[in-house]
Nucleic acid binder design. Structure first.
Lengths: 229, 229
DNA sequence: CAGTTTTATTACAAAATTATGATCATAAAC
DNA sequence: GTTTATGATCATAATTTTGTAATAAAACTG
């Protein structure tokens, strides 16, 4: 599935717990602890879902939710609210503002993951599961396979995620740091240069069909997936 | 992003630390150590953000902030105040004067950068990321590319930044020194004449489509990017 | 017009950045 | 408990970029 999830939660313990659980289940996780850094992380490339603590400092969750719903680009990002037991009113308000679902603390990891998957499935029947075709290079998230015609291209899991990210975010430079955040997940400490190596492997994997030209080096800036020269 | 930031801070150590951190993150940094030189650097071309120490000699930060808010041209430049812990009153006054945010020392580089990005995004949601088109010459900061029609123009990182600066500050002469400050960043020791060479390279890069005529030599003064003859 | 100043151009070596292959550690599979 | 994959780093090669200096060309000055 490899959806990218943004967690907005001020309590460190809960944030880490959520991060751990979701990463266990194969999500790429980004975490923010306050309003500002959340806004910061909400910019392109957008997460596939936002997990939002209801009450957190620097602006309540409701404000952030409203903000997301105002901007046309973020409007469609599904939101799941985390609420404490008994805040029944909040639930109502949350759903009014446009949250797609809510979960009451405490909750089980199982429930959390189930709801997340449900919401994602519901909201983006396409973008995450639909096969992507760029100039004959086909990536099918469901069968988890990359093909050109009926030729299957072999690559490692990281290369697959990297390619997937690129194909869903074309025509845009990403720094090594950004790629690490979006493909590896944040809170991973990995050398910048490691990206180079995986770029190399990905290029080699899609080289036979000449699609390696789609992965372009932008000197001093990072890499870009583009169909233009 | 390539935003230009002016730091106003009297303590050398902090000034250097801030400069270092921000340059690491790709900002172009200018630094002033007192009121006068700050005013000096505040003239056109305006920075995209001012990072202002609250208490600094030759006029407190509040005065500078007020001054910036008075002038119609500088009014919209976002300001972030640096305050020492415990100066709670000051924070309030700072925000009254029109600071967009404040950071309490000591702070982490991560927080600093996050706040700066948040403030910049809030204040100029576009100008830094929007593609610029001047007579068919297109510069797209997002894909980090310069095109004419569907022809891609190749150039080095410095030429790209130089062109970006020109396109966002047209119809105005800039001395070599000013160009160095705004495109290379201050605290770089580079020969004046080096600008000539990069102008040459930039002209050569955009020559195929005849856009090199936009970069005009102003003898005795510097260079200008202009659509007029 | 000759002399002076300023800019244009070219060439080149140093510096910075990226590419690539090999290695080692670790996790997954058998 | 091996064997096999996979992933991160390191080391080194290959490229690109950059600053400077040297020279040519152009633009002023008187």
């Amino acid at each position: 599935m490899t959806a990218r999830i943004l967690i907005v939660e001020d309590e460190l313990a809960i944030r880490e717990m959520l991060t751990f659980v979701l990463e266990q289940h194969g999500f790429v996780v980004t975490a923010a602890e306050d309003f500002d850094s959340a806004l910061d992380m909400i910019c392109e490339p957008y997460p596939d879902l936002v997990l939002l603590d209801w009450m957190f400092p620097g602006g309540s969750g409701i404000q952030l939710a409203k903000r997301l719903r105002q901007d046309e680009f973020t409007r469609q990002i599904p939101i799941i609210m985390l609420t404490a037991r008994g805040e029944e009113e909040d639930k109502v308000r949350g759903l009014e503002v446009g949250a797609d679902d809510y979960i009451t603390k405490p909750f089980s990891p199982k429930e959390l993951v189930a709801r997340i998957k449900a919401v994602i499935r519901r909201s983006s029947p396409t973008s995450l599961e639909e096969p992507i075709d760029v100039q004959g290079l086909m990536l099918d998230p469901i069968s988890h396979r990359v093909t050109v015609g009926d030729q299957v291209l072999e690559m490692g899991p990281t290369e697959f995620r990297l390619l997937h990210f690129f194909m869903t975010h074309p025509e845009r430079v990403y720094s090594r740091e950004q790629l690490l955040d979006n493909v590896w997940g944040t809170n991973v400490y990995v050398e910048d240069r490691t990206v180079d190596v995986h770029i190399r492997r990905l290029r080699k994997a899609i080289e036979p069909s000449n699609h390696d030209r789609l992965i372009q080096t932008v000197r001093g800036a990072g890499y870009r997936f583009s169909t233009r020269t």
